[in-house]
Amino acid sequence: MMEFIVIPILALLFATAITVAVIRNLWAAVMFTGIYSFLGASWMLILDAPDVAFTEAAVGAGVSTILMLATLSLVPRSSRKRGSISNSDFETKDPPRRRVISSLLVVIGTGAMLIYGTLDMPLFGSADAAIQTYPAPSFIEKSQTEMGEHGLPNVVTAVLASYRGYDTLGETAVIFTAGIAVLLILRKNKASDEIGAGQSEVTS
């Protein structure tokens, strides 16, 4: 039954990815990336990962699209005034033919090697795969008894915040660092503005 949903989702995922690769307009590419993330989130939901699907839908289709659009609005090719940007300002150049051929060769080679590697992998959903035998069952069992007297129903949260709490602390620190770095790069202050303006005069 689920196949009737999965197969269209996979086909759409594939079509969106190819479209992003060949499309020249950057606005359209960004919107297709949002669609791609949302389709990916739908598939994750079917694959029993509601937490991840949640995050992917909010981050990939929401925040990341907004950030890319904000960047696009800051980087049009022509230097016309605000409000008069036309669609053609966001056309990318087609890569030269030599580059297309060489990158296609690299991609096909890498893909072939990866597919050769999957031949030894456990089949989809098999219960005796290495990932299913250890340590996942112990997490599910232990979180019933160790997390307070009645357990914590969402095992993902239990593993995230308790069993792997140190890891999550590190991830939070990474987000903190990235936020500070973006502030340092983009924060407006007078001194750096003048320097920036001076440099752009030199180069242009």
Partner: peptide, 24 residues
């Protein structure tokens, strides 16, 4: 398995933070 969910959950949010850095 809850473990891939946990790993990918944090990876997504770290991913958006690093994407924002690249865009900046």
């Amino acid at each position: 398995n809850p473990l891939p969910s946990v790993l990918m959950l944090t990876a997504i949010v770290v991913g958006i933070a690093t994407t924002a850095l690249a865009l900046a």
